[in-house]
Nucleic acid binder design. Structure first.
Lengths: 352, 352
DNA sequence: GGCAGCATAGTTAACGTTTTCTACACGGAG
DNA sequence: CTCCGTGTAGAAAACGTTAACTATGCTGCC
């Protein structure tokens, strides 16, 4: 490692000078896309090593037109949903030779816009938005605008776990079957014999995740010739505390419920806590199901019956589709399946 | 939004032409670092809006010399340790106006090297390495070389949760008191009256995390005038399965143990599972403690006594120190405190 | 022996910014 | 009336790389 000078980064020119060749030749040796004589190549590689040279990604992107960067915008880094989707995105990005930018907006819509703008500056090849969103006309219109904005600079908007924006909006969409999963798990409870099933966490009808899951819940009832009793439907948010509080509230009334579906596993864990506190046994006295199949679900007491989402596959597909949109031109909308995972928190209802 | 053409990204020149000024003037309006008449400014801003122009971050970095990017290299995105440290890194990076690159190496040392090389190309201002590492001479030498390599291109190596490499190695180090935490939790168990305490997960004596925690365990015994019984020390890895298996193995022998310290909370959750399976009650029959205070610990059955690590603060400090190393020139080594969190998995031992 | 054709290397311009230097006009002071 | 400072604007060079040309020296063929 002789000749390494501290302070300023060596450039192609420095390498060229050290090897006694031109900058072009250095570039060619490194890219390997042009014939170079063995002896020259050797000298260049030697100089690269001596100077500890690495290419300047910015300069390369400037001339090459592509940054080999995928951006990943999400609400929060904590929370179990992120990890696996993020892992999928990162893995696929890496597999495709891209690096991965990650940003969080903590639920702040303005901040999300800022981030997208930032990614437009960064020329990210794909901008992956994770998680459900609102479905109001204004929000949809704004998303459509963003999609077009990104397209204009060569980026691709990718929606991960959220339904498409509109037919003529340039975006890649990878979602999973929210409604089907809710249908399946509710159907399972109904098949066990439950007839009074509570649904916890349906406050925002405009939120795509909320509404789809509630729709599945409703459809399963319909399929059994039943209608949902509104007094068994509780609102709330997506956290454990909410599940806990809503359950407490339901227990004070004499609802006759024999099962509870939490809108997420996190909510369901709050449900379990409230039931335990009330001295009810799960599943002997009451069954509980969740949604998401986060790792923790298997460790709850009892292990939670829930709906599995292919988190990682979601992230991988998102990146894969977006980067190969020439090949997959037809089909920039993917719907992944979900399935029920039966554990110990569900059982037939007690005899009356 | 008139005049927006699809396909190719507008440049300063386009904006300049649209506004009837020079590129220089556009740059000045956007940067706001030079007097520009009000009318010109207005025209330029108007053109920027019309063309939906955003700056090209690569080009700016090329001339400006700085990318405003922080890189974040970690073993895995899944696993509870990542989330909070990552959140800290991301938050601080955002607060300092930087964007955040994230890469995983899945424990592959060569891959880690590749990633660092990649970040050198990207000119990340700081390269944060998270998690413990080996402490062999070769590994240390390699890290030292990497640190100098990064320094040469203007990047800063940041070690997060790992002790310093050496005195004259240009790196920022933010660690937490692994040994002290292990001392404290062991001391707590000893104070409760336990005398036969098992330690699970100490297989790699060269791994910094492993050795520091085991050292604390040993020192606590010494402080009580005791020595550690080697038959109570089990090796293994950092996963749940390992805790489960090692505990099973210990239970087959008649060790007389009354408490178990898991090297991580994950390991401890495996310990709990094995104990439950053996029909032992926690903490009545045997006490269990973990390390890390991951969120799940509070939801285990019973809630786990453990050692709290300031995860998020770790990440924040790492970025803060690295980006302001002129101001903090003195002190590029920070040691954060840990403390015991007492929950329900520990109690005095039963009377014999 | 001259010349086509190939293998190898170099020159130059371009990518989209910012920065430094230069230019121009205007107003006031001497 | 000239000269200088000030406020505003533009021209040109630079950042580090690549790609499109251009140039050179061979080899081999007629």
């Amino acid at each position: 490692m002789a000749g390494v000078s501290l302070g300023s980064r060596p450039t192609v020119k420095d390498v060229a000078a050290a090897a006694g060749v031109s900058a072009t030749t250095v570039s060619r040796v490194l890219a390997g896309n042009y014939p170079v004589s063995a002896s020259t190549r050797k000298r260049v590689l030697r100089a690269v090593q001596d100077l500890d040279y690495v290419i300047n990604a910015q300069a390369r992107a400037l001339v090459g037109g592509t940054t080999r960067t995928v951006a990943f915008i999400i609400r929060d880094l904590v929370g179990p949903l992120f990890a696996y989707i993020g892992q999928g995105v990162e893995q696929q990005a890496t597999a495709e030779g891209r690096v991965c930018l990650v940003c969080t907006h903590h639920g702040d819509a303005d901040r999300e816009l800022e981030l997208i703008e930032l990614m437009r500056e960064q020329q990210a090849e794909a901008v992956v938005l994770v998680g459900g969103g609102l479905r109001t006309p204004e929000h949809l219109e704004r998303m459509a605008q963003i999609a077009r904005s990104l397209e204009r600079v060569g980026s691709r908007l990718v929606l991960c776990g959220r339904p498409p924006i509109g037919p003529d909006v340039p975006a890649t969409v990878v979602e999973y079957d929210n409604e089907g999963g809710a249908f399946a798990v509710t159907n399972y409870l109904l098949s066990l014999g439950h007839r009074r099933i509570a649904f916890i966490g349906a406050a925002e009808p405009e939120h795509t995740t909320t509404s789809a899951r509630f729709d599945g819940f409703t459809r399963a009832h319909a399929a059994h010739g039943l209608t949902v009793d509104p007094s068994l439907v509780a609102g709330g948010t997506f956290d454990r505390e909410s599940g806990y509080r809503q359950t407490k509230a339901l227990l004070t009334r004499d609802t006759g419920m024999t099962a509870v579906v939490g809108i997420t596993d996190i909510v369901a864990s709050g449900v379990l806590a409230a039931l335990h506190e009330a001295g009810l046994r799960v599943p002997e006295d009451i069954s509980v199901a969740g949604y998401d199949d986060i790792p923790m679900s298997a460790d709850l007491n009892p292990p939670l019956t829930t709906v599995h989402i292919p988190h990682e596959e979601l992230g991988r597909s998102a990146v894969r589709l977006a980067l190969h949109r020439d090949d997959y031109a037809q089909d920039q909308h993917l719907m992944l399946g979900t399935h029920v995972v039966i554990r110990k928190s569900t059982a037939p209802p007690r005899e009356r």
